[in-house]
Computed example of a mutant assay.
Amino acid sequence: MSHSIIKSALKPLLLLAALFAFAVSAYTSANAANASSSDQSYSKVLKVAKKHLGASYVYGAVGPTHFDCSGFTKYVYNKSIKKSIPRTAQAQYNGTKKVSKSNIKKGDLVYFGGSKHSISHVGMYIGNGTMIDSQNRGVITEKVYSPWWHVVGFSRPATLSYDD
């Protein structure tokens, strides 16, 4: 067989191989995108948060048995959906997508303090005006709007899917 015959016979095979590689790549990318979005469910985030109810508060602690407020939210997001958020409450507010009070969803973070530039506490909204947070009584659920908290903002660290 001459060199030119082999070369012309290989062209369709190379084209077919390239198309196959493209199809496999597209299929893998689509499945990875679907897997990552379905892996970001509120139920996973809530499950990890509730698992730590009663854990004690320790300033600067990031879990898994002791938490401060932002250590708790950082831990919950990382362990549940592998989402890394900043360490402190102020940095979490500054580094995540802001949402309005009217657009708050379960799993969003609620910030407290003197102003948006002086945040001293963070909790995770769990619906019906309540949050789960780590404060001096440990990890508890409590009302967002309480006399001892001054809400200054809300953010959405991740777009979560909801089962309900």
Rank of each mutant, 00 (worst) to 15 (best):
K83S: 02
S25Y: 08
S80Y: 00
A89S: 07
H121G: 13
V152W: 04
G129A: 13
K74W: 06
G138V: 01
N136W: 09
I81M: 00
H117Q: 04
V122I: 03
D133E: 10
K44T: 12
T96I: 12
Y42Q: 14
S37K: 11
N31M: 02
K116C: 08
A17T: 12
S146E: 12
C69M: 08
I104E: 11
H150V: 14
L16Y: 07
L15N: 06
S43C: 13
A55E: 03
S146K: 05
V152T: 03
K74T: 06
S155E: 13
L53E: 02
G123Q: 09
K50P: 10
V45Y: 10
S161V: 15
G138R: 00
Q92K: 05
V110P: 11
K82N: 02
T130D: 13
K143D: 12
K143Q: 13
K105N: 11
W149H: 15
T159C: 12
I140V: 01
L160Q: 06
G95T: 02
V151S: 14
I119E: 00
K105D: 11
S25C: 07
N78H: 00
I85K: 04
W149A: 15
I6K: 06
A17P: 07
K74N: 07
V139I: 02
S38W: 05
T28F: 05
F72K: 01
L19M: 09
S102C: 07
S4D: 13
A17W: 07
T141G: 10
L46Q: 12
L14R: 08
L19K: 07
L53T: 08
K44M: 09
I85H: 01
M124C: 12
V24D: 10
Y162S: 05
A33D: 06
V99H: 09
V48T: 01
L109G: 06
L53I: 10
Y125F: 15
S115G: 05
R137I: 00
K116A: 12
E142T: 15
L14P: 03
H52G: 07
A21Q: 10
L109S: 07
K82D: 01
K51M: 15
S161E: 08
Y77G: 04
A17D: 06
G107C: 11
K51P: 08
S80T: 04
D68H: 03
Y57F: 04
R137M: 00
V152L: 09
S43A: 15
S70V: 03
K101H: 05
I81K: 01
S120L: 08
Y27E: 06
K82C: 02
T73D: 02
H66F: 11
V24C: 12
Y42F: 14
K106Q: 14
F67N: 00
